[in-house]
Design a protein around this nucleic acid. Structure first.
Lengths: 212, 212
DNA sequence: TAAATAAGACCGACCGGTCGTATTTATTTA
DNA sequence: TAAATAAATACGACCGGTCGGTCTTATTTA
C-alpha cells in the first residue's frame, strides 16, 4: 500500500497471480502447480513471475498467505457477525460448506488439498500450512469454549473433541463433494453438525431444526 | 496363481512392486509416484517395470487394486469377526485407526491421499478410486443398517448420515495424524465415534466405556 | 528352444530457474 | 512543464535435470 491508499504498482498483478494460484492449487496442489500453466492462465510469461517471487517456494508461501486471507474474508469474517455461542459455531460451519458449494475454487478447498499433499514433506511450505491449520483449530476450539462459558453447551463437553468432529465433517465434505454427489455430501455435512449442536445445546430455540 | 498353488513366475515380483507402490503413493500420491524411485527402492531397473505393466496408468490401477486387497485383509476382514451390530461398526472404525497408528504406510492412508489427489482429474485412475470409495461407503452403510435391524440403533437413525460421520472421523485422522500430534488425533477419532455409538445404542453394555 | 524377464542406453516433453534485453513507470532534474 | 534518469517489470531464449516411455540386447526359466 502507498500512503494515499492506492495499490502499489505491482500489487494488483501480484494479487491476481496469487488468486489464480490459489484456484489452481485447490485442484492440483501446491507442488502440482505448474508455473508455466499459471503464467499461461494469466497471459504473462513464466519468467515474469520470478520478478515478484524469487523461487517457486516463495510463491507457494505467498499463495498460502493469500488463501488464508480469502478464508478470513469469505468465511471467518461473516461468521463472526453471528452471536457468540452455538449460533456462531453453526454459522462458521455453514459458511464453510456454503463456500465449498459456490465452486469459487474448482478443487473445493485449498487447505484440505494442500495439507494432504504436504503432510509427509518437511519444509517451509508444510510448516506454513500446519501453522494455518493450527490457527483454524484454535479458532474452532475458542468458539466452542465460548459456547460452554455462555451455558449454551454442557460444561462436560470435550472442547478439542467437539472441534475435531466439526472440522472432520468439513474435511470430508471437501473431499467427497468432488467424488460423489455434492448436494448429498453438503446435506450430510450440514445436518450432522447441526444435529450434534442441537443435541448438546439445552436451549432448543437457539438453532434451526433443519439446515438453513 | 498356478494350479499347484505356487505363485506364477513374476507374481511375487509384481506383488512386491505393488506393495512398495502402495507405500510410496500413500505419502506422495499416485501421480507423485516416480517410477524411477519405485524401481530404485526395489533394486530393479525402471524399464523392467514396463515388462509387467504397459504404462504408468496401468501400474497405478494395479496399485489401487493392491491397496484394496490390503485394506480388505488388514481392516475389513478382522473387523467382520466382531458380532453384527454396533460392535462390528465399532470394530471396523477401531481397526482403521489402529492401522493408521501402525505406520505400516508412511503416508497414513493410501486412499485418503490418492482420492484427494485425483478428486479433480477425470480418468481411469479417478474412476477406480471412486469405485473403491463407493464400496467402502456401502459397507459402512450396510453395517449401520444391520445394527438398526438388530435394534442396536434407533430406527430413526439416518443410515447414510451416520456412515458419513464415522468415515469423516477416519479421513480427518489420516490427515491430522500426519500434521499434529498423532496420539491426540487418534484419541479424538476413537472417542468421537465410540461416544456417538454409545449415545445412540439403547444397550449400554454392548460397547466399552472408553476406547479399547 | 521359446517365451518371459531383466538391464541399460536413449528419447522427447516438461519442469523450475537464469540471463540479457526491451519496455514501462515513477522520480528527479533542467 | 518537459526532458532525463533510474528502477521496476516483462519478455523470449535457453539451461540442467527429471519425468514417462521405447528400444535393443542379454539373461533366465519352463
Amino acid at each position: 500500500m502507498t500512503v494515499d491508499g492506492r495499490l502499489a504498482r505491482g500489487e494488483r498483478t501480484r494479487t491476481a497471480v496469487l488468486d489464480a494460484a490459489v484456484s489452481l492449487a485447490s485442484a492440483n496442489g501446491l507442488d502440482g502447480l505448474s508455473l508455466g500453466h499459471l503464467a499461461d492462465s494469466l497471459g504473462v510469461s513464466k519468467s515474469g513471475l520470478f520478478a515478484h517471487w524469487r523461487s517457486k517456494e516463495a510463491l507457494q508461501l505467498a499463495t498460502i498467505d493469500r488463501a488464508v486471507a480469502q478464508w478470513q474474508e469469505l468465511i471467518i469474517g461473516p461468521a463472526l457477525r453471528a452471536p457468540r455461542g452455538v449460533r456462531r459455531i453453526h454459522a462458521l460451519h455453514e459458511a464453510r460448506i456454503a463456500f465449498y458449494a459456490t465452486r469459487v475454487l474448482p478443487g473445493g478447498c485449498f487447505f484440505a488439498t494442500t495439507e494432504f499433499e504436504f503432510k509427509g514433506r518437511p519444509g517451509a511450505v508444510r510448516d506454513r500450512l500446519v501453522a494455518a491449520f493450527a490457527d483454524w483449530t484454535a479458532l474452532l476450539e475458542r468458539l466452542v469454549r465460548e459456547a460452554v462459558e455462555l451455558g449454551e453447551l454442557p460444561a462436560e463437553v470435550d472442547v478439542a473433541l467437539l472441534a475435531y468432529e466439526i472440522d472432520s465433517s468439513g474435511i470430508a465434505a471437501a473431499m467427497r463433494s468432488r467424488l460423489f454427489d455434492p448436494e448429498t455430501t453438503y446435506r450430510h455435512a450440514r445436518r450432522g453438525v447441526l444435529d450434534r449442536l442441537r443435541a448438546l445445546c439445552p436451549d432448543p430455540h437457539l438453532l434451526p431444526e433443519g439446515p438453513s
